[in-house]
Every structure is written in C-alpha cells, then in structure tokens.
Design a protein around this nucleic acid. Sequence first.
DNA 1: TATTGTTATACTCTATAACTATA
DNA 2: TATAGTTATAGAGTATAACAATA
Lengths: 166, 166
Amino acid sequence: MESTVKERSIEIESTGLCTNLGWLLSQANHAMTTEMTARLEGIGLYPRNFCVIQAASQDDRTQTEIAQAIGLDKTTMVTSVDELEAAGLVERVPSVTDRRARIIRVTEQGAAKAAEAKRIIGELQEEILDSLPADQRTALMDGLQTLVGDRLAEPVECGRAVRRRD
Amino acid sequence: MESTVKERSIEIESTGLCTNLGWLLSQANHAMTTEMTARLEGIGLYPRNFCVIQAASQDDRTQTEIAQAIGLDKTTMVTSVDELEAAGLVERVPSVTDRRARIIRVTEQGAAKAAEAKRIIGELQEEILDSLPADQRTALMDGLQTLVGDRLAEPVECGRAVRRRD
DNA sequence: TATTGTTATACTCTATAACTATA
DNA sequence: TATAGTTATAGAGTATAACAATA
C-alpha cells in the first residue's frame, strides 16, 4: 500500500496513462477535491458550497445565474443554498425586478466564513502549485483557465450523459 | 443558453472561480469525460474501460495491479473486467505463480479495439491541446503529470470520503 | 408560452461488508 | 492471518419530471 513517488511515476508511465489527459484530469480532480473536503471539514463547508458562496459574494446574483456560472444543475443548487441558508451563511432575497427570482445574499457571518475558506483553500493551492517547477506553475493555471473558458467550457451532447461529481 | 467564449470568460472571472484550481480541474474533467464518452460511444467503450484495457495491454498484470494503477476500487474493477470480458476484449487468465490472482489478457479483438480507441482519444486530445497557445500545451501536460505522480498521487484521508466518478 | 425556483423521486453508481479460495 | 477476487447490498447524490408563481 505504501508506494514511493518514484514507484508511482514508473507505474503510471508503464500503463500509458500518463499521456492520457482525461485520466490525468480525473486523478488530479479526485485527489484535489478530497483534500479540499478534508481541509474544509473543520469549518463545516463543502467545496461545492464554497464555490456557491464565493460566486454569490461579488454582485447581486440570482440562484440560476450562480448555478450556471459554476455548472450546477438547478436542483442541486437548491440543496446547496438550503445548506448555506440553514447555516446562516446566505439569505434568499426576492429580486425587485423579477419576483420569481431570488438573489443569494451573503450574510456577514457568511462573508467571514468565505474569507476563512478562501484562506484555507488558497494555502492548499499554493502548497500544491509549489510542488511544481516554477515554469509549470503559471502555465498550468493559465492552460486550465483557457480550456475551461473556451474549448472545455460546456460539456458536449452525449447519449448517456455523464453525471457531475463535486 | 447560447453563450460566447468571451461571455463565458467574463462570467468565470467575475465569480473568482478562475483562480480556484479545484474548480478548474472539476470543470475540465467533467467536460473532457463527457466528450470522451460521446466519442467512444460509437465503438461501445466507456472511458474507464479504455483505461483498463490500456493498462492491461503492456505487461502481464493482475486485476488488483491494474485497479491500483488506475485508482479504481477492486469491486468497481470487477464490473469493468466483466464488461470487457463479455465483449470479448479481455480474458481472465489464472496466474501461474498465484492461483488466487487473475491476469487480464487482452484478446486480439481487444487489442484492435484499444488501438481504435487510442486513435479516437488521441485525436480529441490533440484537438483540445491545439486550442492552447503552444507554450501552455506541454506545460499543462507536464504539470498534470508531475502532480498526479507526486503531490496528488494518492487521495488524502478524509472523514466523509469523496466518491470517485469516471 | 417560457422561466424561476421548489419538491419528490427515480436512477445510477460507488463503496462497504461478507464470503471463497488460496497464500 | 492476510490477500485476490467475487457477490450482494446499502447508501450517497445527481438528474428527471412535475408543479407553483410569475414573466
């Protein structure tokens, strides 16, 4: 069960997985999400809810706007907002321009929690990026941002839809 | 529903999500997996099973060895091998050195299928990487490989374990 | 008629636990 | 006693569909 970094690298290489972008993203995502979950456990916040509260922090945004920005299903979004509201971190405020819509307002307590979470996640992220050679650090972030903002912005149509996780 | 690349980029930026490595990985992973699933649908192969058959293609490997290399639970692995075997792409061959273990042998048909899948996925991957500026291309792959081989090689302990998807 | 948000639920799929056979 | 593989099943969590209020 104990495996060194070198063993792990050799193992990946010999399977041809290291040239597989999809697998690399899946691995990195899973390990990263797990670590974020573990670190945020202490302040009682799921990574996904951190995204929600973060997206709600800037301007006035409706539930649907936030869901679409993050890439969440609207019913999944309801669950997130329910949790955040129950914890007193956000409030659903009726929009004045559209009485169907609810603005997600971050409470004072929510803002404090978000700041704390941002610190924790920021630290983790720095730690992870610091494990890379300097030139790979920014290039990785830049590359991912480009992909997610462009070529991989929206999931394609797919017969048997792939469910989202985290 | 229709959103341009520029709109998408602005949206991401204004939410602070673009600096969130975890979210970027999650987004990229989901879009990539969906696209792989769509493209492999034509030849009747799931992305995960492609990983399995690919990992089984090189040396003689047991089921557990492959599962561990890819990062699959052993029970999930059983399902994958069942599917591949039912499709005639692999065979479970008893190991001669350990009668408990099964070597996953790729059949001729399986090798052909794997080659076809590799072509399809390779093309997709090139297409995606080509959407990046030249300098970001290799840096992205290198960076991911480094992370997955090292800092993000194994998911950390976590009270409420994060389930793996794809 | 279309959209926001909600509820209820079906469905998918992973991981746990328990078991067999070997080591 | 521990490990490889299997089976059965519970459990988590997303997406579908149907609904109410409003546009």
